[in-house]
Computed example of a mutant assay.
Amino acid sequence: MTIQAVVFDWAGTTIDYGSQAPIFAFQQAFKATGITLTVAEIRRDMGLDKAQHIRKIMALPDVQKTWQQLYHRDPTATDREQLYHDFKQRLLSELPNFAKLKPGMASVITYLTDHQLPFGTTSGYDADMLNIVLPVAAEQGYRPSVNVTSEQTKGVGRPAAAMLARACDLLAVTDRAQVLKVGDSINDILEAKNAGCLGVGLVDGSNLMGLTEAEFSALTPAEQTTARQHVSDQYHGVQADFVLTSIAELPDLITTLNQSDATQY
């Protein structure tokens, strides 16, 4: 096997350890309407297009019940649009504060560049969000040649194949089975499966882990092992092709795949 390209997710995968920026923005936007969201309620659908994610959250039974108690009616399309607008403005203001590359990503960039391996991204971000993230990432040496959002696929985001398929086309991929899609959520793995690519789930700093770097470091070694196993089990539950503890392990995975017919790592 020869890996032709790598397609990354953004928050929780290459930047923003623990995917914290969207959590903050979701909680603050809903709080302004009188609804308190738990982190678990937000994280269960992370990886989706953000407008779709808003719809998913507003469809949660507890959220609908609270909305009806507050406003004496069901939420409308206008309510969802207003919430999304508020969420987006909050996220846009916070993104620069959460765009630091994750540990190990710098070495991955060096490896991909040295081996002339094309790489791009798909994202739950929209173009306005990416316009803020891209220059901050570029200052740290991370410059994906292709960045696909659902705006480029007629609103079709994860877990459908559309964004990843377009990224593969733009990267001149001839066989999607030789593309690694690297992400930190279940929807990233499902996107890879639906597109016929290899799904790589990251454990540390992931949305599924849901901890900041400081919070993870504060765990005991036994607690860290348990937390990592819980995340790995979730990836394996959706048949991820590979599960890596850290993004820093990606170059070794690519080297192994290029040198053999390995299908597990």
Score class of each variant (00 low, 15 high):
Lys193Glu: 07
Val148Leu: 13
Ala138Cys: 11
Leu134Ser: 05
Glu151Phe: 10
Val156Met: 14
Val133Met: 06
His85Asn: 05
Leu134Asp: 10
Asp114Asn: 15
Asp184Leu: 08
Pro135Asn: 11
Leu83Val: 12
Val148Asn: 01
Gln89Pro: 00
Met129Arg: 01
Gly183Gln: 05
Ala192Tyr: 05
Thr122Lys: 03
Lys100Gly: 06
Asp126Cys: 04
Asp188Glu: 10
Lys88Cys: 08
Asn97Ser: 11
Gly196Lys: 08
Pro135Ala: 09
Tyr111Val: 07
Ile186Val: 15
Gly196Cys: 09
Gln82His: 14
Lys193Ile: 09
Tyr125Gly: 00
Ala99Asn: 03
Asp128Arg: 00
Phe87Cys: 00
Ile186Pro: 00
Gln140Cys: 12
Lys181Gly: 09
Val136Cys: 05
Gly120Lys: 01
Ser93Tyr: 01
Lys88Ile: 02
Gly155Phe: 13
Glu191Asp: 12
Gly124Asp: 04
Phe119Ser: 02
Ala162Ser: 13
Gly120Tyr: 08
Lys181Trp: 07
His115Ile: 11
Ala172Thr: 10
Pro103Val: 15
Leu92Glu: 00
Lys102Ser: 07
Met129Pro: 01
Gly124Trp: 01
Gln152Ser: 09
Gly124Pro: 00
Asp128Ser: 01
Met163Ala: 11
Val136Tyr: 03
Ala127Ile: 04
Gly196Tyr: 13
Val173Asn: 06
Glu81Asp: 15
Leu101Thr: 09
Lys102Phe: 06
Glu94Pro: 00
Asn131Trp: 02
Arg166Gly: 04
Tyr84Glu: 02
Arg80Gln: 13
Ala161His: 12
Asp79Ser: 12
Tyr84Thr: 02
Gly124Lys: 01
Gly120His: 04
Gln152Trp: 10
Glu81Ile: 06
Leu180His: 05
Asn131Leu: 05
Gly120Thr: 06
Phe87Met: 03
Arg166Asn: 09
Lys102Trp: 03
Lys100Tyr: 08
Met163Trp: 07
Ala127Cys: 08
Lys102Gln: 15
Gln82Trp: 08
Leu170Gly: 06
Tyr142Asp: 03
Ala127Arg: 05
